[in-house]
Design a binder for these strands. Structure first.
Ligand SMILES: Nc1ccn([C@H]2C[C@H](O)[C@@H](COP(=O)(O)OP(=O)(O)OP(=O)(O)O)O2)c(=O)n1
Ligand SMILES: [Mg+2]
Ligand SMILES: [Mg+2]
Length: 1170
DNA sequence: AGCTAGAGCGG
DNA sequence: AGCCGCTCTAGCT
């Protein structure tokens, strides 16, 4: 259709249709209006039958109307040749119409031709539908939206809808061609949006910075001074590489550095040699370059980017130098951290790691901050000798004898000494103990301890008694292998906690709930050669008991700031091996990032706490453009530190980068899609270039000798780094602003360019990946590339601060008590898991075991076995697993997404139409979390019948663990929401994000009850909650309709929409107030609230509507259009179709007359089309 | 023309 | 690797 503009004839014909169509549109728009509708006309909901109500547009009526206009329809839009296109016989004609010559196309470019046909075929199909269902000359927009057909215009754009795999099916060229004919700008935008959603490249800012007056030489000597003497190899590593770098920077300083080097002990073998070789190469190169530079020294350099540079460059440059802060203040006094009076060390834990294999199995490493002088430094705490904790559940009635019961009672009433009772207990358990001991000895476990303790159990395993019972607690070292999880014996029926990880056990047992101050006692410092970490300090403790959470009462330690480093890599593609190679790496650091509270831009954009650095290398077989080395030396001397390094090989670049990262000692690495791209590339290149482990492991804080399997995890699953990659950066947190933005924002695209524009109001210049090699041709373009990398790093960091990612995730982590790094990865299930683990542990419950991979294999094996022997049992289990799919979702083939396992929320059939009187939206606050509290739903209170029949409400009066937790969360959220009312600007956005995060956490607690892989899986509880939810909605609708005589037009899960029929906002409000009061009377915790007051509303379908919301802020009222579920809010529709849809909506929802609306929409669409 | 599985929303 | 409900489209037979 796009090939020709409508001819004069076409237009004439079109106008004829236009007039009639417009009249009809008006008619239909009027019909949609609800203003004249008699209240109560359609009666109330018959909830039980859920009769659909179509009181406006009936489908057949609609089609009849359209059919009458079919004749007129023909002429409009594209059909200049006078071809009809509802007719099969003419299909071929149409599909090739407009092509210059179909046969030519075939012969020239068969592929393209095919694609082209596809596009047009689709177009035709859409147009057919259009003709059939909608009016070709632009039916009233309301009706069009109702039908999800936005007119021919929109229909045409519909073909640009993305396909499932996020790729565009049609060939780019054809699509672009077609698009370009509509609106060049939009076409361009759309293409960009599609092509590389996350591709990271570009900027238009330049770099120029003056930092400290410290020379490289000074830096090296300082680092020598500051590092304890014993730490020889560490020093060596640093020195050798710094040397390599220093040579590049300043040939004259070479001698000093080599002298320094001589005094140090040489590092072993290959790596040193290789590095030295690099040094020599570099030296030669530098000399050569220097000669060249001297020759043409007079060339006045004008920084072309200076004028173009916005914002950040100015921030970073300046006199206050970051290095002053870091190194200058205390090269001497920093040698010791500060210990409090009792000899314990205050330690702020940030991250932790556990080694699963090798000799250190079961050792836990804590990473965090200690105070030394005026600043904080990194510290690693090595926790040795972690002890397993396994509970053996005794068989039957071992402790259930009358004698025990009596003694227990006596002890409680102080008739006998408690010791007597305890002795008796241990005696009774002797049989059990010896059996366990025997098992342990067979595993070569030599040291262990056992004791009888009272614990509770409330979870799903039917072989373990519910309630409080005596069990045998067993401790033995993690160094020893675990007992089999399914082990049973004569005296015990089950073991729990056999495969609990050391780290989990540590966090739960020591009650460490997220980043917080700990107190470490009885620690020993360890000699440098034996250090396992790259931290400034490292201490070792022999027992986890030497760590406790600092009591909050006595000390008011401030939360330490962290060092955040943004990284951006620029890569080229090695065609031969089809891999990415790194050509440049940019790094920007903020040395004092607050994590306890959001930071304003003015707080962190200070030169005194920022530093930056870029290292770039030559392309293979190429050289740097003329003048580049001079530019680098100039910049470095101007900055007084190294801000631009050139290296001759990728390996040298990687070495350089690692050294820099080590020197920065970052707590957090940040980057846009860093977990999906930069980090992965970095580690693969490290491997390919054979960078020594003493180097690459500095990417993390744990020294490592072997690279883990990088591709082991599921990188294809979605996003995020694989477990192997994550273990490499142990000790540092990873903040991927791409993933964060996706979680925290609703955007059409999450590319750095788009986010920079919408969130930071900045323009980012992109450099296409395939253009990167070309950037090395001239000095200007190379500097541009460097600038691009640095700006990208900067934008990513800015985004992180803008979204307050660190304070937010830290708070969520403190609530749940998991690892911070996991929260940053968005692991909601794990957060819920840890929240429950901590709570249940505190209440002396034995928690369910995690289903490990080992266990899974076991289960599969068992299933096979039972299938072979007698499949009765296995089948029963399967049926029990999924008994919800009655018929429709035929999904039993094991893999893929499962159908729903139980019923969820109730959705009422909407009374469709366009409303122009006030509509009230009432919504329960935190419905499911409130239900859990209202009915005291908990693992401990709900009795689960063995045969999954619908569970009933608990009668227990003691508040369960789950309701208590949710009460906490809901309260917190309520507080945050209340703060929102008095905040403004950025603060509102941040508080809203926080509020939403708390809501999601609470709702995820419910979600995890129904999550079959959850450790706390309890489908009956989840089912009970949704069942109550449905009942509550039903009874609320009933009350509002029958008792209050209001008309409910829609409802979803926990909300109802009420048509007030009023024009007076005050009256509408008072009605709402009354209804709210009436509903809330019925419940203790449950609380319904006014969630929205709408002036006009277009209600189209379930979960699809748009409305004018009246909002109040700072004493003034204003209106916004709210759109839910409509196509235009979806990411998979083109911008053009969104814009047009938006305009139509704004017209329909405006106060204008029907005639005006139709006219206006019509005109605008005509304009868009031409 | 029917059907099914996803994607992507809303809750 | 939170849950379910509801369009709506692509892709298949
Ligand atoms: N991501 C979500 C959103 C909602 N729900 C469920 C639980 C909610 O309680 C219920 C209602 O959804 P709402 O959007 O109304 O959320 P809440 O009622 O929990 O909070 P609010 O106070 O914002 O209404 O739907 C859910 O399980 N997961
Ligand atoms: Mg709600
Ligand atoms: Mg709701």
């Amino acid at each position: 259709m796009a090939d020709e503009q409508p001819t004069a004839a076409g237009r004439r014909r079109g106008r004829g249709a236009e007039a009639t169509a417009r009249a009809e549109a008006l008619e239909r728009l009027k019909a949609l209006r609800r203003g004249g509708r008699r209240s109560g006309e359609s009666g109330g909901y018959d909830i039980k039958l859920e009769t659909p109500i179509y009181d406006t547009v009936e489908d057949d009526e609609y089609d009849a109307l359209v059919a009458r206009r079919k004749e007129e329809a023909r002429g409009f839009i594209v059909d200049d040749d006078g071809l009809g296109y509802g007719d099969e016989g003419q299909e071929e004609d149409w599909s090739t119409a407009g092509l210059p010559s179909s046969s030519d196309d075939e012969s020239l470019d068969g592929h393209k031709s095919f694609k082209r046909k596809r596009v047009e075929k689709k177009e035709k199909k859409e147009n057919n539908q259009h003709v059939k269902k909608s009016n070709p000359s632009l039916t009233a927009a309301a009706a069009m939206m109702g039908k999800q057909r936005l007119s021919a215009m929109l229909t045409s754009t519909a073909m640009f809808r993305k396909s499932k795999d996020d790729k565009v099916k049609e060939s780019e060229s054809v699509v672009d061609e077609v698009l370009a004919e509509f609106a060049p700008d939009d076409a361009d935008r759309e293409r960009r949006r599609r092509s590389h959603p996350v591709s990271v490249l570009s900027n238009n800012k330049s770099f120029l910075s003056v930092n400290s007056v410290q020379s490289e030489h000074q830096l090296v000597t300082k680092s020598l001074n500051s590092v304890p003497k014993e730490n020889c190899d560490l020093v060596m590593n640093s020195v050798v590489n710094q040397n390599a770098y220093a040579v590049v920077c300043d040939v004259n300083e070479e001698k000093c550095l080599i002298d320094e080097l001589k005094d140090s002990r040489p590092v072993s073998g290959v790596s040193t040699e290789l590095i030295k070789k690099d040094v020599v190469e570099l030296k030669e190169e530098v000399k050569e370059e220097t000669r060249k530079l001297n020759a043409k020294i007079s060339n006045e350099e004008k920084d072309p980017a200076l004028s173009a540079s916005a914002g950040w460059k100015a921030v970073i440059s300046g006199n206050g130098a970051a290095d002053d802060m870091k190194n200058g203040s205390n090269s001497e006094e920093l040698s010791e951290f500060e210990v409090v009076a009792d000899g314990s060390l205050p330690f702020y834990i940030v991250d932790a790691h556990e080694q699963f294999s090798g000799a250190n199995m079961g050792t836990v490493y804590l990473f965090g901050k200690v105070k030394a002088g005026n600043t904080y430094h990194s510290c690693c705490v090595v926790v040795k000798n972690m002890q397993r904790c396994v509970y053996a559940i005794p068989n039957g009635s071992l402790f259930q004898t009358d004698e025990i019961m009596k003694l227990e009672k006596d002890a409680e009433e102080s008739c006998i000494a408690p010791a007597v009772f305890r002795t008796k207990l241990q005696d009774v358990a002797s049989g059990l103990k010896s059996e366990i001991a025997k098992r342990l000895l067979s595993l070569n476990v030599s040291s262990f301890s056992m004791s009888v303790v009272k614990r509770r159990y409330a979870f799903e395993r039917s072989d373990i008694p519910i309630g409080e019972n005596y069990v045998l607690k067993l401790n033995y070292p993690f160094k020893n292998p675990p007992l089999p999880a399914d082990l049973k014996g004569e005296t015990f029926c089950a073991l729990l906690g056999t495969h609990t990880s050391a780290l989990e056990h540590f966090l739960v047992k020591r009650k460490v709930k997220g980043p917080s101050w700990l107190s470490v006692s009885k620690f020993s410092t360890c000699p440098a050669p034996q250090r396992v970490s790259w931290c400034k300090f490292e201490i070792t403790i022999d027992s986890s008991k030497d760590i406790r959470v600092s009591s909050s009462s006595k000390n008011v330690l401030e939360t330490p700031p962290v060092i955040v480093t943004a990284i951006n890599l620029k890569t080229i593609v090695n065609e031969k091996q089809d891999v990415n190679e790194i050509v440049s790496a940019s790094v920007i650091s903020c040395l004092k990032a607050k994590i306890d509270t959001p930071m304003l831009a003015s707080e962190w954009k200070k030169p005194s706490i920022l530093s930056h650095f870029t290292v770039v290398r030559k392309l293979d077989g190429g050289i740097f453009p003329m003048g580049f080395n001079k530019e680098a030396t100039d910049r470095n001397s101007k900055a007084g530190s190294n801000v631009l390094c050139s290296e001759s090989s990728e390996r040298a670049l990687l070495n350089r980068l690692m050294i820099e990262l080590y020197k920065l000692d970052s707590d957090v690495l940040v980057g846009h899609n860093i977990s999906g791209f930069d980090l992965d590339v970095l580690l693969h290149r490290v491997q390919a270039c054979r960078v020594p482990s003493s180097m690459w492991s500095k990417i993390g804080r744990l020294k490592r000798s072997e690279m883990p399997k990088l591709m082991k995890g599921r990188s294809t699953f979605g996003s995020g780094a694989s477990p192997g990659v994550m273990s490499c950066i142990a000790g540092r947190l990873l903040c991927d602003t791409y993933l964060c933005s996706r979680d925290l924002l609703k955007e059409v695209s999450y590319s750095l360019t788009q986010l920079a524009k919408t969130q930071l109001n900045k323009d980012r210049k992109e450099i296409a990946p395939h253009d990167t090699p070309r950037m090395f041709q001239t000095l200007e373009s190379l500097l541009e590339l460097i600038e691009c990398g640095e700006t990208d790093a900067w934008l990513s960091m800015e985004l992180m601060f803008h979204l307050s990612v660190l304070p937010l995730t830290r708070q969520l982590t403190n609530i749940s008590g998991n690892l911070w790094g996991k929260t940053l990865q968005g692991a909601r299930a794990q957060r819920v898991e840890y929240l429950l683990l901590h709570s249940f542990h505190a209440k002396k419950f034995i928690v369910p075991d995690k289903i490990s991979s080992h266990m899974k294999e076991n289960k599969i094996a068992k299933r096979r076995l039972s299938h072979g022997v007698g499949d009765r049992k296995a089948e029963e289990e399967n049926i029990d697993d999924a008994n919800f799919d009655d018929a429709a979702p035929h999904n039993e083939h094991g893999k893929g997404k499962k159908g729903p396992a139980y019923a969820g929320g109730l959705v009422l059939e909407p009374k469709k139409g366009l409303y122009d009187k006030y509509i009230l939206l009432l919504d329960f606050n935190s419905l499911y979390p409130s239900i859990i509290q209202e009915y005291n739903i908990c693992f401990t209170t709900v009795e689960r019948s063995p045969e999954g029949f619908g569970p009933h409400l608990p009668s227990s009066k003691t508040t369960g663990v789950l309701p208590e937790l949710l009460k906490n969360l809901v309260q917190r959220r309520k507080m945050v929401k209340s703060w929102m009312k008095n905040a403004s600007g950025l603060k509102v956005q941040q508080l809203d994000i926080q509020q939403q995060a708390l809501k999601l956490t609470a709702n995820s607690m419910y979600g995890c009850l129904g999550f079959s892989n959850s450790r706390f899986y309890a489908k009956p509880l989840a089912e009970l909650i949704t069942q109550q939810g449905r009942e509550i909605l039903r009874s609320t609708v009933d009350l509002v309709q029958n008792n209050l005589n209001l008309e409910v037009i829609y409802g979803d899960t926990d909300s109802i929409m009420i048509y007030s029929g009023l024009d007076d906002i005050a009256k509408a409000k008072s009605i709402a107030g009354k209804a709210i009061q009436e509903v809330n009377k019925k419940y203790k915790c449950l609380e319904i609230d006014l969630d929205g007051l709408y002036k006009r509303m277009l209600l189209l379908k379930k979960k699809k509507y748009a409305a004018v919301k009246v909002q109040f802020k700072d004493g003034t009222t204003y209106e916004v259009i709210e759109r839910k579920g409509l196509d235009m809010v979806r990411r998979d529709w083109s911008l053009l179709s969104k814009d047009v849809g938006d305009f139509c909506l704004s017209q329909i929802l405006s106060e204008r007359s029907c005639e005006d609306v139709v006219e206006s929409i019509h005109n605008s669409l005509m304009k868009v089309m031409s």
